[in-house]
């Protein structure tokens, strides 16, 4: 199966991925609505670069009590009409990349906007062992 992979050594912390994701999926430039979390900042020990992306672990699919998140051909989709806003998927996501919205949630649909924008190939879409 192919999925997003984050390569921290290549990341420059520009956040273009966050912007690309929110523009594509939420029609707004708002990094906090992105379905990935890339951090590049300084703490007392120096530069910290970390990233979480959806690796298609299926925890959300398994946790959803009403089958509002489904997987088909290696892609997740969200069926808003079925969602009861219980928040279970957000809680179980090990990468914390599911966005809680006023109504419903946003999951990574592997649209690759983030990887298409990444200037340094720190985000790639490649074969992962599942």
């Amino acid at each position: 199966m192919k999925a997003l992979v984050f390569h921290e050594k290549k990341c420059i912390g520009c956040k273009l991925c966050h912007l690309a994701c929110s523009a594509q999926n939420e029609e707004i430039f708002n990094p906090r609505l992105a379905r990935l979390v890339i951090t590049s900042c300084y703490d007392r020990d120096g530069l910290i670069v970390e990233g979480q992306v959806c690796d298609l672990c299926m925890s959300c699919v398994e946790a959803c009590p009403v089958d509002a998140i489904i997987e088909k051909n290696g892609r997740l989709s969200f069926l808003e009409d079925l969602c009861t806003d219980c928040g279970l998927c957000v809680d179980v996501c090990p990468n914390q990349v599911i966005v809680k919205k006023d109504r419903g949630i946003g999951v990574c649909v592997q649209c690759r906007s983030c990887a298409n924008w990444c200037p340094t190939e720190a985000l790639t879409f490649e074969e992962v062992n599942k």
Binding site: I12, C14, K15, G46, P119, T120
Partner: peptide, 19 residues
């Protein structure tokens, strides 16, 4: 050089984080 670093929305990352 330890890492290249960019400002927000910048693909050029001129900064060099060095030790």
């Amino acid at each position: 050089l330890k890492a290249k670093k960019a400002c927000y929305a910048c693909p050029l990352a001129c900064s060099n984080y060095v030790k």
